[in-house]
Amino acid sequence: MLERIDCQAARELMDRRDPFSGEEGGRLKAHLESCPACAAEARMEERLRSIIVPAELPSPSPGFELSLKARLGIGLEPRTDPIARWGWAAAILTLAVLVLPYVTRITEAALRVVSDLITGLAEVFGRAGSNAEPIIGQLSQLSSPENVMMLNLVLGAIVLLGGIVAVGIAERR
């Protein structure tokens, strides 16, 4: 059996957003069944709510969103989605892998030319009895396999970094 409430308590309950919920809502319902004055107020409360919150909210005009998007600059520049971004990364990596052997050969060839040049110079300076012979001797080792490998690693890292930076720039745009 629900505890009875008076008109004052009923009106306070009617002020709640959801007046008929819970146990108190049950008490309110019971009160309204026996009190025509409060029942009339409850009906009015319901009608007022429907005025304040129409069942169907009025939408702005059809051009509202388009105009707003234009003012915000949304959708004017295509942005890369995650799939496109990974596509870019994969393309750059593939390119790097394909290009790297050629870069390696070019590097090796370049180092050999420099090394031969230095060796040639060493012979000339050696004949002249120059003191620069030890330094030239070191420089002539430039095309050693260790140096070539190191240089290739550095070049590979530069290509990869360049690729990452390029993806970053593409995404920002």
Binding site: P54, L57, P58, S59, P60, F64, E65
Partner: peptide
């Protein structure tokens, strides 16, 4: 944002 708030903010 539009689905959630357009009509409410408009009202």
């Amino acid at each position: 944002l539009m689905d959630g708030f357009r009509d409410r903010v408009h009202l």
